[in-house]
Nucleic acid binder design. Sequence first.
DNA 1: GTCTCTGCAAACCGTTTGCAACGCA
DNA 2: TGCGTTGCAAACGGTTTGCAGAGAC
Lengths: 140, 140
Amino acid sequence: MLSIENAVQTLKEKNIRLTPQRHELINILSKGNKHWTVEELYQLLNESMPSVSITTVYNNINLFCELGLVKEIQFGEALSKYEWKKEDHYHIVCSECGEMVDVWYPALKEVEVFAQSISKFDISSHNLQFYGTCSNCEQK
Amino acid sequence: MLSIENAVQTLKEKNIRLTPQRHELINILSKGNKHWTVEELYQLLNESMPSVSITTVYNNINLFCELGLVKEIQFGEALSKYEWKKEDHYHIVCSECGEMVDVWYPALKEVEVFAQSISKFDISSHNLQFYGTCSNCEQK
DNA sequence: GTCTCTGCAAACCGTTTGCAACGCA
DNA sequence: TGCGTTGCAAACGGTTTGCAGAGAC
């Protein structure tokens, strides 16, 4: 799990300013080990910085993705979610409410090798998602 | 692979009219064993029916998905692609041009079982995509 | 003081909706 | 002939862009 200090260091090295908005966004993202939409981050950020704009959230979440501080998780028709950078893993998503949890399972390298062997593609990565119903939605 | 006759039969059973637009769209989709975006289907349809509107393509591709004649393939930030209904399989997509091919690999049921065992989710399905570079883009 | 960053407003673009005219059954 | 369908235009909604003023360093 990436530390706040490392993230701040990365910004400094690239001469990217540590604005209050960026600092607070890093604070939110690096705690909680969760998955947020842009809108959710905007709401959370607004609690401590009421004047922040959603443009700034977009600007910085994209910047953080480019810097490798944050990973974008894209899922079917749902809005992208973002998580603080950690080791590669898969995700389970609730089809009802969008709730998302991590799955730590060994990377399916042998399936990648198979896909490469039967295609004319040079395979570089793969993505695996699970769909289901979370316990909260199950009860309803 | 679903036949045109079966598709037409499904429409009849549900009292859905077989308009020329629908017939031609089924013709395009059921041949070629490819993956198309809405825009691509619209272009192809326009070759034989110049007056067709993109609204009609949206209406019918969504209808066909609901009827199970067509499967929507959603991929990260890319536009959805659609394929004629066939047995479940995975996809490889070219990160450069979006070119897509099928991968017939046994469903990863044991990974689903694992995901279920370590989460509080009732897992119903999963999705696996491979990313890479197709031979065309490799040469460039 | 400089130059990046913020935040507002407008643009963007794929998709959906409303609706009047059309045409399949 | 009736009602489902088409196709136009407008609306929609998440995201990006342009830009003038603010502010980090």
